[in-house]
Amino acid sequence: MPYLFINAHHVARWRGNCLVRFGDPDTAEDLRSALAGMDGTYNRAESGVRCDLGHALLAAGDPEAAQPHIHRAQQLATMTGSRRQRRRIDELSKAVNRALGG
């Protein structure tokens, strides 16, 4: 029988995913909370959280802090074979590189 399990970290992940689309830099804390609550078994979800966190950090004016999250998101997206996620990460990488003057 199907079930749905939701905890505070899931809500933080979904909330962060929504708010980052509006350019809200304060969503980084929600996304950090979501990341802290992940147990390492959901690579696709972690990749998405790290991509969203990279966006939030870029919106907050901290592209250097976004880089390790982008790198890990790329690794995870490659592991899962998610083309959609890799496209998102590639676009974010380009934006971070522009912000860093590269």
Rank of each mutant, 00 (worst) to 15 (best):
M1V: 07
M1T: 09
M1L: 11
P2Y: 04
Y3K: 15
Y3C: 08
L4S: 07
L4Y: 13
L4M: 11
L4C: 13
F5T: 15
A8D: 14
A8F: 09
H9S: 00
H10A: 05
V11C: 07
R13A: 07
R13K: 02
R13F: 01
W14F: 08
R15A: 06
G16E: 04
G16K: 00
N17G: 13
N17P: 12
N17Q: 09
N17E: 06
N17F: 06
C18E: 01
C18H: 13
L19K: 04
F22I: 06
G23Y: 07
P25Y: 01
P25F: 05
T27E: 02
A28P: 04
E29W: 08
D30S: 03
D30W: 05
L31F: 11
L31C: 05
S33Q: 06
S33W: 10
A34G: 12
A34Y: 11
D39T: 13
D39I: 05
G40R: 14
G40P: 09
T41Y: 02
T41N: 11
T41E: 02
N43A: 12
R44D: 14
R44T: 12
R44M: 15
A45M: 08
E46G: 10
S47N: 01
S47F: 05
G48A: 03
G48R: 07
G48E: 00
G48H: 05
V49M: 06
R50G: 07
C51S: 12
C51V: 04
C51F: 10
C51M: 13
D52M: 00
L53Q: 00
L53D: 04
G54T: 09
G54Y: 03
H55Y: 01
H55G: 04
A56H: 12
L57C: 08
L58K: 01
A59R: 11
A59T: 10
A59F: 07
A59Q: 03
A59G: 05
A60P: 02
P63S: 07
P63N: 06
E64F: 15
A65C: 09
A65G: 14
A65Y: 02
A65P: 00
A66S: 03
Q67E: 14
Q67C: 00
Q67L: 15
H69L: 07
I70H: 08
I70N: 00
H71F: 05
R72I: 07
R72L: 10
A73G: 05
Q74C: 12
Q74E: 15
Q75L: 03
A77I: 08
T78V: 15
T78S: 14
M79A: 14
M79Y: 15
M79V: 11
T80P: 03
T80N: 05
G81Y: 03
R83V: 14
R83Q: 15
R84E: 15
R84Y: 01
Q85L: 15
Q85S: 14
R86T: 13
R86P: 05
R87A: 14
R88K: 01
R88W: 04
I89H: 10
I89N: 04
I89E: 01
E91W: 06
L92W: 08
L92G: 12
L92D: 05
A95E: 05
V96S: 09
N97I: 01
R98Q: 15
L100T: 12
L100N: 06
G101S: 11
